[in-house]
């Protein structure tokens, strides 16, 4: 379904601020696979997702989605197949527009936008039905501005918007990180149910080791722009959080990880 071939990306090349965010990423993802990604801060997880979405253009390498080379396609062109939810709940929705209008925009993802009245009653009924899946009593607030919702509600709506018009690929970048624990759990449960019920191909970046193990068919570990580990579903079933940390220790032995990095990982994934 998705192929990445030796993707490189360097920000501010040949300056003092040079950052080599991705250093030769090769990746094959099957249709319907649910991938979780972990890694240290600045390891390039978000950049990888941005490269997939088209927000960032790689310096070299090739991106193939569904058998089609999309390396040169722009973000809005790729949006036909890719949907995403941002870490920041404010980024995923247009705050000064109503919930219904936001849902409408999402439902038009990858379709032509005509001079047709947007919010017909048929469409509104459909949105009302869809939003009930969130179980947040938003059914009667379709005409409210989305800016008036709480962060958790907004993120849940963002998630709904992403899957409203079934995407081939769903990109989730720490989409629960900015939420309080209760909302985070709520959104995570929704994520799981949406991905399973629609059998979506999905990437989820997370900083929670347990989330990474709990969810998904496959876990990728990134460091300094490289993919340093790829844990399969069977392996994940057997692993505990501590096993994973031990795995980091093994990596160190294989001299792929330094001591301080291991320290950092332990600190972060506690």
């Amino acid at each position: 379904m998705i192929q990445l071939q030796s993707i490189h990306k360097t920000f501010h090349p040949e300056t003092l601020n040079e950052v080599r965010a991705l250093r030769g990423i090769d990746l094959q993802i099957r249709r319907g696979e649910f991938v979780t990604i972990i890694g240290t801060n600045g390891s390039g997880k978000s950049t990888l997702l941005n490269v997939l979405a088209g927000t960032v253009r790689p310096d070299s390498g090739k991106i193939v989605i569904g058998g089609k080379d999309v390396t040169r396609q722009q973000e809005h062109q790729r949006a036909r197949t890719i949907a995403r939810v941002f870490q920041n709940p404010f980024l995923g929705t247009a705050p000064d527009m109503t919930i219904a209008e936001n849902l409408l925009i999402a439902s038009l993802r990858g379709k032509r936008r005509h001079l047709r009245i947007g919010l017909s009653s048929a469409r509104k009924n459909r949105f009302r039905e869809q939003i009930s899946r969130l179980e947040m009593q938003l059914e009667d607030r379709l005409d409210h501005l989305i800016g008036t919702l709480s962060g958790g509600q907004r993120q849940a709506v963002s998630l709904l918007m992403a899957v409203l018009n079934k995407p081939d690929v769903l990109l989730l970048d720490e989409h629960t990180a900015a939420l309080d624990p209760k909302s985070a759990a709520q959104v995570l449960a929704l994520t799981r149910s949406f991905i399973e019920s629609e059998n979506l191909t999905a990437f989820m970046v997370t900083h929670s080791m347990s989330q990474a193990l709990d969810l998904g068919d496959r876990t990728l570990m990134m460091h300094k722009g490289e993919m340093i580990d790829d844990i399969s579903a069977e392996e994940k079933k057997r692993l505990t959080v501590d096993d994973l940390l031990d795995k980091f220790a093994d990596l160190r032995k294989a001299e792929k990880l330094t001591d301080e990095m291991l320290e950092q990982l332990r600190r972060e994934y506690r």
Binding site: Q77, T93, A94, D96, M97, L108, R109
Partner: peptide
Amino acid sequence: RTDFGISMRATGNNPAMAAASGIPV
């Protein structure tokens, strides 16, 4: 209030979201 007009408003209100929704910002 048309599909097109609503998309246009979204572009101004939140370009990141508009681009992610496939609107050529």
